[in-house]
Amino acid sequence: MIEVRNLSVAYPDGTKAVSGVSFTVGDGESVAVVGANGAGKSTLLCALVGILPASGGTICANGMAVQKKHLPQIRAAVGLVFQNPDDQLFMPSIYDDIAFGPRNYGLSEAEAEKRVSEVLAALDAGHLKDKAPHKLSGGEKRIAALGSVLAMRPSVMLLDEPSSFLDPRARRGIIALLAGIGLTKLVATHDLDLALAQNKHPVAQRKGGLFADGRASDILQNVHLMAQAGLELPLCCQASKRA
């Protein structure tokens, strides 16, 4: 579970990226943070795992306050998938990338290998095991990045724009893949079709502040709210309105 109360995050130059945000993500829930570019979605996710320090408010993840002393446990339980898979895949092969987390958390090589095999089988990506990251397509990189976090067996997954840089087919594949992951999920996106497909509970963010929180049908199909967030209705809703 993640509980955020009155969170503010400011960059060293004084820019306030997140301001007074509060929300709760319950166990097993799938929540989307939707907002336009620059709304502070990625900053919010980084703050949840302590990459960026909060300048105000509190964050509680898996029953622990996000503070320096708890960061190793929090980062083992809360996995963050970055927007650009090239940021996440830094080892010479996909095997080593997926095994990176388990090895760092002290698993033996046999256990790490077992985790890699399990994850690759679950993602139907066994063929990527020995490939170098720079040889993969955008969709494959995204799957590998997802695998590198799943190998740590987190209880919560934070996904930053999981459908960006993907062609429609790869995007559909990722949406289906995410739907099959039965973990607590917090997805930051401006892909509203993804948000609608994945989440029963989106929250909308505008210029660092949260201003709408509720059911997917109430939020994502509300033209006025979406316009306020700098977004448009999901394509499927636009089509049904036109019809």
Partner: peptide, 14 residues
Amino acid sequence: RAERVYAAMKCRGF
């Protein structure tokens, strides 16, 4: 890029 990579490494226990 280096900062983001380092953040990704820290997130996985580095």
